[in-house]
Design a binder for these strands. Structure first.
Lengths: 231, 231
DNA sequence: ACAAAAGTGTTTTCTCTACACCCATGA
DNA sequence: TCATGGGTGTAGAGAAAACACTTTTGT
């Protein structure tokens, strides 16, 4: 096989920053690293890119392999390419952030794999430059969520407006006015109101909503701007 | 040297989508490829990542080497990682978009290097997946420019409001109302009005402005929203 | 009946849009 | 003096923010 001469080849990895939301706090999925160096230290879910797959495919495969999760929202957001970021040899890492419904998968994750959820502000020390990746991914998540309705990926199929509001408040680290929030969300036309109520957190109960998938697909670019508010 | 065993290594390249603006049209800087395969075909400015440098450094180096340009706005935006995107062997490409003041550098580029500016809608066929990269980069540029004041990078030190407006219109492919545009731009506090006027395009002449560098640095996140308008 | 959460209405404030208008100047 | 592009002013529509108020229901 012909090659480009005299050029150095590198390992290429993918690392996934997996976000989840348990109804109260934004969480991060971490695993104990399975190979040297830094074996058994906490790490992002990652792996090397294999010969036949694209980086996107590698990220999906690695997620699936480490957690059993499939069909997850994945978005490539940054390459970490400093020469010395891995002490063994040069490895470039393509970082992805992933959004999953924590309830749907948490049992499975804990039973079959050695992954664990951490509140994003109480995570353990991470290997290499993974802390930087998390910081960058969170920033990117805020940025993206401010403009596009991606946070629904973090919620169950059925969810209530108060739940949604808590999620927005958590991600953006601010209080939001309920009245304005409800009006804004409803005006997007992204939600379909269900008959059923969630009575777990109040006497009155809050109506469940589900995503209007059609609109969600077509209006993905839509600008939300559910910010500024209260105080 | 210790290595991770049994993993495939790849070549890693950087490719720069270089945007320029001549006062009328958005342009793209292309070079004739200097190596096989596809030698002498039009290509983005790119090169392989060397052992001691980060991808960001590689992009800056490659830009400098191919054009003489230094200190240019460069932003990594996407990895192109399909296994077969290069026919010779697997090469991952980290794509960057660059914004430069076309006037400052155009003479130099044409004289010393074999790079050429093309209006973005009249570019020649490009090698590999470079057309896709250009499309993606342009989309990213629009997206980013809609929110952040990066377009100033495309203008000379001194520029007029009408020039700025044409640039916004060109990038976003829409007409903008002059009154509203001026008001909005001025309200950002990013511009400093100069004494001098540009009389080249009207009898009355338009005042030159320069960037308030301090504010530009600190308010980089600032949301512009100079859109919707006219008709 | 009352506490507590869900959800609605309403006022005030601000911003955006459209467009009319004035300005400066060379031909 | 008039044509041309530069630049300002302003009324009306619409959206955002603040917050008061109503609804529901378990205890």
């Amino acid at each position: 096989m012909i090659e480009y001469s005299n050029q150095t080849h590198y390992l290429v990895a993918v690392d996934c920053i997996v976000f989840g939301f348990d109804g109260e706090r934004l969480k991060l999925l971490l695993v104990k690293r399975g190979l040297e160096p830094e074996i058994d230290k906490w790490s992002l879910i990652g792996g090397f890119v294999s010969a036949g797959e694209s980086t996107d495919e590698a990220a999906a495969r690695v997620l699936k392999k480490n957690t059993g999760l499939d069909g997850i929202y994945l978005e490539q957001f940054q390459v970490y390419g400093k020469p010395d970021r891995d002490p063994i040899e040069r490895v470039l890492s393509v970082a992805y952030f992933a959004l999953i419904d924590i309830h749907k998968y948490s049992a499975q994750i804990n039973a079959d794999y050695h992954a664990e959820w951490f509140p994003i502000n109480e995570k353990p020390a991470l290997i290499f430059d993974h802390e930087t990746m998390v910081t960058d991914a969170w920033k990117k998540l805020r940025y993206k969520a401010a403009l596009h309705p991606i946070l629904f990926e973090l919620l169950p199929k059925k969810f209530t407006l108060p739940q949604l509001q808590v999620l927005f408040e958590e991600v953006n680290d601010m209080k939001i006015d309920t009245g304005n929030f409800n009006r804004k969300i409803k005006s997007t036309g992204l939600l379909i109101k269900l008959e059923e109520k969630d009575k777990s957190s109040s006497k009155k109960g809050a109506f469940y909503f589900k995503l209007n998938q059609k609109r969600y697909q077509s209006d993905f670019h839509l600008v939300l701007n559910v910010f500024r508010s209260s105080k």
